[in-house]
Nucleic acid binder design. Structure first.
Lengths: 186, 186
DNA sequence: TACTAAATCGACTAATCAGTCTAATGAATT
DNA sequence: AATTCATTAGACTGATTAGTCGATTTAGTA
């Protein structure tokens, strides 16, 4: 990807999170990224295309870094914790990326086509864990609830330690996972 | 409160949730509410004052409806569930109000003075439950984590059933609470 | 070197924005 | 009837917005 195009995306991520979609003007994005407005519109036909591509770019980026590493020799709990931890650590390392996805996940600016394209990859990542879930180690519940529980707890944990950085240590992160695990396990 | 003033607040709530603060023009608010822009600015000096007062109005409204009813004769779990259920039911009944508070809670448009004024009332509501939490029925953890866990689970539950209305029944709502309770209890 | 196409620029535009201003109401009091 | 003042209206304004356009530079190729 082109260097200026990249710079525009990186700049937009920060500004959209800090000031919202409509709160950030294309002029400000261009200026902060160090390019002319003409250049911005050369790479992104409209402001909507910009946020749409930023959404894809950011979410793919997150999913790439959090590749699954399911290990059949380990207990289900350990496998789930390993994945949970990867998400949480990434969220704490890259708060803007996570914040952006959270904020704009339900937003009308992101086309539903884009949302669906990305959702599929996430389902794929979790498929391997589903086998483990089906052998009675966890409570009986439908997939969507389990998924929202998992994802909700991750986002909640990230937000909590973002808000209380002085509380962030291994003990409390482990405790946060137990809060999730003891909830879903039988 | 004046009828037109009320109408402006009600309209703003919906539009701000659907289109964001900057995404909604004062002209659109006025038009949708059926008043002139002059009238809007008569009651609210600026657009910022409008959202600030809308925030107070909405959150006070929520807290009023969810009055605590701690009962010393009941088990802690039942007391917590009763409060949890009140929040969840209200959130499902008034999704816009909850969505608004969620979206704008971290927003720079709401003055920190306003945020603090409201936060205090929430702490007050939960004070009576803290006594129960301290007698070893739940895991050892600090207040902020417990609070975020409680609140996070409520928001997660509301969002889940908003997204999957066909799954909303007493069995699944009870299950959602168990997911929270079994997580925090010893 | 000469040609071509993509990249880059920033002045420009039509539309829209938050907020103002003046005038016209309506209700209450004297 | 005359006076007063809060309420309501919508045309208006200066500033800002997303997006355009034609000129210039850069990079690649023959």
């Amino acid at each position: 990807m082109n260097e200026k195009e990249q710079k525009i995306l990186d700049t937009s991520l920060v500004l959209f999170v800090e000031k919202g979609f409509h709160g950030t003007s294309t002029a400000e994005i261009a200026k902060t990224a160090g390019v002319a407005t003409g250049t911005l519109f050369h790479y992104f036909k409209t402001k909507e295309e910009l946020i749409d591509r930023l959404y894809i770019y950011t979410k793919e980026n997150i999913l790439e870094e959090v590749e699954g590493d399911y290990d059949n020799n380990k207990a289900l709990k350990d496998n789930v914790k390993s994945l949970w931890l990867k998400f949480v650590c990434l969220g704490l390392k890259e708060p803007y990326k996570f914040n952006f996805i959270m904020t704009f996940h339900c937003s009308p600016y992101i086309t539903s086509f884009t949302k669906g394209r990305i959702e599929d990859k996430f389902v794929e990542l979790l498929k391997v864990y589903k086998k483990g879930f089906n052998d009675n180690q966890i409570k009986e519940m439908y997939d969507e609830l389990l998924m929202d529980c998992f994802w909700g707890n991750i986002l909640n944990t990230i937000m909590h330690f973002e808000k209380n950085p002085e509380k962030m240590n291994n003990k409390n992160i482990d405790l946060s996972f137990e809060l999730f695990w003891d909830g879903i396990s039988r």
